[in-house]
Amino acid sequence: MGGDPIIASWLVYGCCGAVLVGLGLFGFMRPTTTLRRVLAFNIVGSGIFLLFGATGYRVPSTGADPVPQALIITGIVVALAATALAVALMLALARVSAGRDEDA
């Protein structure tokens, strides 16, 4: 089994998470279409969940700390719901602006 790796794996995940969050936020703020913003939103989300995972690992001894994992799962569900709503709204907007009005 290798000794201590050069850098702890949790640090790698942490940094990746941070980079993802930065990229996502940048993408979010750039003047782009809504679709791109929703994608950026997902990137930031996954970045944060990665961070959460990294924090979980840091606690030594009895293996990974279960709480962050629970939070990550909930987070993913919530992110999915938000994306679904965003896409639905974009479709409705497209349909409305194309002239056919929603049924009352």
């Binding site: 936020l25 979010f28 703020m29 750039r30 003047p31 913003r37």
Partner: peptide, 8 residues
């Protein structure tokens, strides 16, 4: 209303 302004 622009996201960039809000972000900043």
């Amino acid at each position: 209303a622009l996201p960039v302004m809000a972000g900043l």
